[in-house]
């Protein structure tokens, strides 16, 4: 500080007013506090959004997923499929124009003859093709990783059915009756496995997982993939698993063991 400024400070003090340097500091503190108070909620929301929304390339705090053990899944059992159809009000008839949210698939290696049977449903991909191609954003991915269809926005173009590598999307081609309140459906719209989102939000397991456990096979495991303490995350860190069409880079939330 120069001599002149020191002089000025002493003059001010003699006048009985607050010392200008101190005043400046106080004003700066007040301004800083005001800015902090103003920005804090926004920063908090932003930070929360970054964690919870989990935009591309960022880890979300919650990501629900499934681990399906094909070696534990019984080839003749379709308890998971029945449970899904019953719970969500879907037809048991596997007609070509009926919805199929989950199905049992049998694969056989023609070179070795080894067969495996296991359920396939929406894989709730991180880079979901259905979400990318949907012109209206009706196909969307929730912050917790569950991929759903907003029936109000769906125009029924079926581009998601064309784009999904898992045949996991269906088109409602008939008038729907006896709908379940928790699984609203709409003629002329696309739909698929919801991972029983309302059950998950209530702290329950998806209907298919519950049915598999009741059948005593324990071939399906559900949980938060991002929680290292969750049973599914621990299991995934212990055993070799894969995802279907991993080469496409869609990063599904459904993992398979033994395929």
């Amino acid at each position: 500080m120069s001599d002149e400024s020191q002089k000025a400070v002493s003059v001010g003090a003699e006048d009985g007013g607050p010392e200008p340097d101190a005043l400046r500091r106080r004003l700066l503190k007040l301004a800083g506090a005001a800015v902090a108070l103003t920005l804090a909620p926004g920063v908090t929301v932003l930070a929360r959004d970054l964690v919870v929304k989990g935009p591309r390339g960022r880890k979300s705090a919650v990501r629900y997923g499934l681990l399906i053990d094909a070696s534990a899944c019984k080839s003749g059992c379709d308890a998971c499929v029945r449970a899904c159809q019953d719970y969500n009000g879907l037809s048991h008839d596997p007609g070509p124009d009926n919805a199929q949210w989950i199905r049992k698939v049998t694969i056989t290696n023609p070179q070795t003859g080894l067969s495996r049977s296991f359920p396939v449903m929406c894989q709730h991909c991180e880079n979901a093709a259905c979400v990318d191609v949907c012109p209206t954003g009706a196909s969307f991915r929730r912050p917790d990783g569950i991929v759903l269809v907003d029936k109000h926005r769906c125009i029924g173009c079926r581009y998601c059915l064309m784009a999904c590598p898992y045949k996991a999307r269906s088109f409602v081609a008939r008038n729907v009756e006896d709908q379940k309140p928790w699984a609203p459906r709409g003629k002329g719209t696309a739909e698929g496995c919801t991972m029983c989102v309302e059950r998950v939000e209530a702290g329950k397991l998806p209907a298919c997982v519950t049915a598999c456990q009741k059948a005593g096979h324990k071939a399906m495991m559900f949980g938060n993939l991002q929680d290292p303490k969750s049973a599914i995350a621990q299991r995934l860190s212990e055993v070799a698993t894969t995802t279907i069409r991993a080469d496409l880079g869609l990063l599904p939330s459904v993992h398979y063991r033994g395929i």
């Binding site: 596997p94 199929q100 199905r103 049992k104 698939v105 049998t106 694969i107 056989t108 290696n109 023609p110 396939v120 590598p165 898992y166 045949k167 279907i244 069409r245 395929i259």
Partner: peptide
């Protein structure tokens, strides 16, 4: 869905 393998289902 499973290149190189034989795939069957009710769907």
């Amino acid at each position: 869905m499973f290149p190189g393998l034989i795939v069957k289902s009710r769907f």
